[in-house]
């Protein structure tokens, strides 16, 4: 027998049980939920939490991923393999496809397709009639996200209205929707970057190897080390990475690097790091002097870059 005082959850166990509760609420309250799985570290934690919430049953929701076409190949391989291992259905919608269908249009002068994920995501939600999408966003990532609810209501245009969010009291989540509306749900709301890595360590979760230190050719742009994109194979087609290749005045260097956060190849700055194990990464995060999103070009656009994207329907 344990003494009364030993009935105690440490902070990771507390975050875990909170997240499991949120996931089960989704399964119980929504008709057609989906789980946004990119292969990144946060969504890797989501998968383990989904297993803990729903096993021994099958996961009661498909995975959904919006591909910009600029992903690290390692990430896509990992994403497909994990979905298969878990017996989950993986739905992929791509920006390239959306161009062809006229759902999205290339933005002149804009290389990054980050923004273009929004119409593709909204179209996928409509196509499959998803009423809820679970995402791995965390409040500690960014100051607009710090404002978001676990259950984040989106109107029929997919928009977030930060000045008029539903109150969210205790763990009583209001999941009611009218037709066309949907919900984004964030089980990791209260997790920090450190919590994510500690959880990965505790659960022995596999992560794509780009999180670990490796040699890679990079070039300097906007104060960041940007990875050299894969070579342009089929020259009869336009180069998907046009604009994201080093210019003559941007010398290429072979460096020992890893990613701290993954967007697409174009907006992910690589950090110089020798960390080649989860333990090393935890030590690095503990000593970090800049935030995780300090390495992402998409957030540096303006003070309110994230807020604006979220209002338009971003994750």
């Amino acid at each position: 027998m344990f003494k009364m005082s030993s009935y105690h959850l440490d902070h990771l166990q507390y975050l875990e049980t909170e997240a499991i509760h949120v996931m089960r609420e989704v399964a119980a309250e929504f008709e057609r939920p989906a789980l946004l799985f990119s292969g990144g570290k946060d969504s890797i934690c989501l998968l383990r939490l989904a297993e803990k919430a729903f096993r021994p049953s099958d996961l009661p929701m498909p995975f959904l991923n919006v591909e910009t076409g600029h992903e690290f190949p390692e990430l896509l391989e990992f994403r497909d393999r994990r979905a298969k291992e878990l017996g989950a259905k993986l739905i992929v919608r791509t920006v390239d496809e959306a161009f062809k269908k006229g759902i999205a249009h290339p933005t002149p002068g804009q290389v990054s397709r980050n923004q273009l994920q929004i119409p593709v995501l909204l179209a996928a939600i409509e196509e499959f009639q998803f009423d809820c999408a679970i995402g791995g966003a965390r409040r500690d990532e960014e100051k607009a996200r710090a404002k978001e609810r676990f259950f984040s209501f989106r109107d029929s245009f997919g928009q977030w209205d930060p000045k008029n969010q539903r109150p969210e009291i205790w763990n009583l989540y209001n999941a009611k929707l009218n037709p066309g509306e949907n919900m984004r749900v964030f089980p990791l709301s209260n997790w920090t970057e450190m919590d994510v890595w500690e959880y990965i360590k505790k659960e022995k979760l596999e992560v794509p190897n780009i999180y670990f230190s490796h040699e890679r050719e990079c070039f300097r742009r906007g104060g960041q080390w940007i990875p050299i994109p894969p070579p342009h194979g089929d020259s009869s087609k336009p180069d998907p990475y046009a604009g994201a290749r080093p210019k003559p005045n941007e010398p290429v260097k072979k460096l020992v690097v890893r990613v701290r956060t993954i967007a697409d190849m174009i907006s992910t700055g690589m950090i110089e790091s020798p960390a080649d194990s989860v333990e090393d990464i935890i030590a690095e995060v503990a000593a970090a002097r800049v935030t995780e999103r300090g390495t992402r070009a998409d957030d540096k656009a303006s003070e309110a870059a994230m807020e604006d994207r979220k209002k338009a329907g971003y994750f």
Binding site: D140, E142, K147, K163, S189, E303
Partner: peptide, 16 residues
């Protein structure tokens, strides 16, 4: 963290 909050110097919604 919201634009409207910084403009008006007040807090509108909870920040965590």
């Amino acid at each position: 963290g919201l634009r409207a909050e910084r403009e008006q110097g007040i807090t509108i919604d909870v920040a965590y």
